[in-house]
């Protein structure tokens, strides 16, 4: 079924179209859910809730304003955030020891298996992982993140730095040849 027909069908509440949308986009959106969720079952739950929100909101979707994929990802990400919102309400001071200007050897990422990358991201502590997801993948600013999660901007920045540091440590552990160099911007 073509995507335009699927969208039209979903807008009119046709279950067959909705099912087809699930078939086509489950894999992609499940990757997003895995980045946010505590475990696989939680990820599936988020995906289901995400699709329910998508079906409810699809009447307001306008293709002229953006692609369907990005639109659905935003909805699913917001669903994931709402689910864990309470967990973010923890104060944290900015860790000045973390250097935000580290430069990483990016070529290692090309060689790593995606499942391995996802696993590493999923091993990050929950509160750091969410910030990392929202900043890196969903491209929200710290201001937007702080409003979304109910934290202050400095907490958002510090958590992102911490997430980056932990990510690097894990990659370095798995790939000892991985190099980090400092560079001034």
């Amino acid at each position: 079924m073509q995507i335009e027909k699927i969208i039209l069908g979903c807008k009119s509440g046709d279950e067959r179209s909705q099912r087809e949308l699930v078939n086509q986009y489950s894999g992609l959106l499940f990757t997003l859910c895995r980045r946010y969720a505590k475990d696989i079952n939680d990820a599936k739950d988020i995906l289901q809730d995400g699709f329910i929100e998508i079906f409810k909101s699809i009447k307001s979707y306008d293709p002229a304003k953006g692609g369907l994929e990005n639109w659905m990802k935003q909805i699913v990400a917001r669903t994931a955030i709402r689910r864990y919102r309470k967990m973010y309400m923890v104060r944290e001071t900015y860790d000045k020891k973390v250097d935000p200007y580290m430069r990483y050897e990016s070529s290692i990422i090309d060689k790593m298996e995606i499942e391995k990358l996802l696993e590493i991201i999923m091993t990050l502590p929950f509160k750091y992982r969410q910030i990392f997801n929202l900043y890196v993948f969903e491209e929200y600013s710290h201001k937007e993140i702080s409003e979304m999660l109910g934290i202050n901007e400095s907490s958002s920045r510090s958590r992102l730095s911490r997430a980056r540091q932990m990510l690097l440590e894990k990659i370095k552990y798995l790939y000892p040849g991985f190099k980090i160099s400092n560079i001034n911007f």
């Binding site: 699930v22 990422i109 090309d110």
Partner: peptide, 28 residues
């Protein structure tokens, strides 16, 4: 965002994880 994270984002955003659509639909 730096180059590392840029590549990370591009690779993971395009990746389709293994999931059973029927199971997801039933849950929905």
């Amino acid at each position: 965002m730096n180059e590392f994270e840029d590549i990370l984002k591009k690779r993971i955003n395009q990746y389709k994880s293994e999931v059973d659509p029927d199971e997801i639909w039933e849950g929905i």
